[in-house]
Amino acid sequence: MIRPLAGMARIGLRFQLAYRSDVIMSVLALVAQVFLLRMVWTSLYGGQGQTRGLSLEALLAYLSLANLQAFATSPIIPRITHFRIRTGTVFFDLSRPTGYLPQMAAFQAGHTAGGLLMLAPAVPVVLLVGTITPTAHPVGYAATLALGYVISLMMSLLICVIGFWTLETGAISLLYRLVSHFFAGTMVPLSFFPGALGVLADALPFKYMGYVPAAVYVGHISGGEIGRAVAVEVAWIAALAVLLWAVWRRAHRRVVIQGG
């Protein structure tokens, strides 16, 4: 079981590295975005010490981290699945001894690892722009981030599976990207969201890909709240696993009966 997945992860990694110029452009966009956000927020703060419990320094550190995370975890597999369904090459993926979803999950993990590798040179720049200092909660940060990544992975797999019905994931992927980045809090921390929007953002799982780990890092979420966040993340993973399993079973039945 391990070797097929390692093989798929390696393909994901190579795939990422094969598109170096794409990644370099994205890294430039990332640095630019962090820089622009810094300008806007510095001006908005206008010398105030704290807003809703966040100092300007903590806010800038938060934004840099949230954007780094969102960039590093942005999914590739909906695009891959879309392409392979459209060209019919998904036949080969389905004919392997290893299941389709484990293959795609491993591919995504390898792709993310490749992204991190290429992101490495940009990290010092982003950290500098964001004036990030070491965190007081390294374990909490690592735990919320790792679980957040698993949630992001499962959501991507869900979009892949939906592709078996719609035969099209381009528009859904784009929508997902916009919605997930916004509700992950890459522009504005979720604690700044007003009323109903705040409630909605709090209820959705996207915050675990950006806001929650980054807020833990800068100390905006601390103490018992970290433990609670981890527990909710685990619950989300369990729920998504059940949903994914059920949806996949239906999708697979559709494939074996209709031939896609």
Partner: peptide
């Protein structure tokens, strides 16, 4: 790369 992947997938 594709050939190695086949080696891995079929162990």
């Amino acid at each position: 790369d594709s050939l190695r992947l086949v080696g891995d997938l079929y162990d």
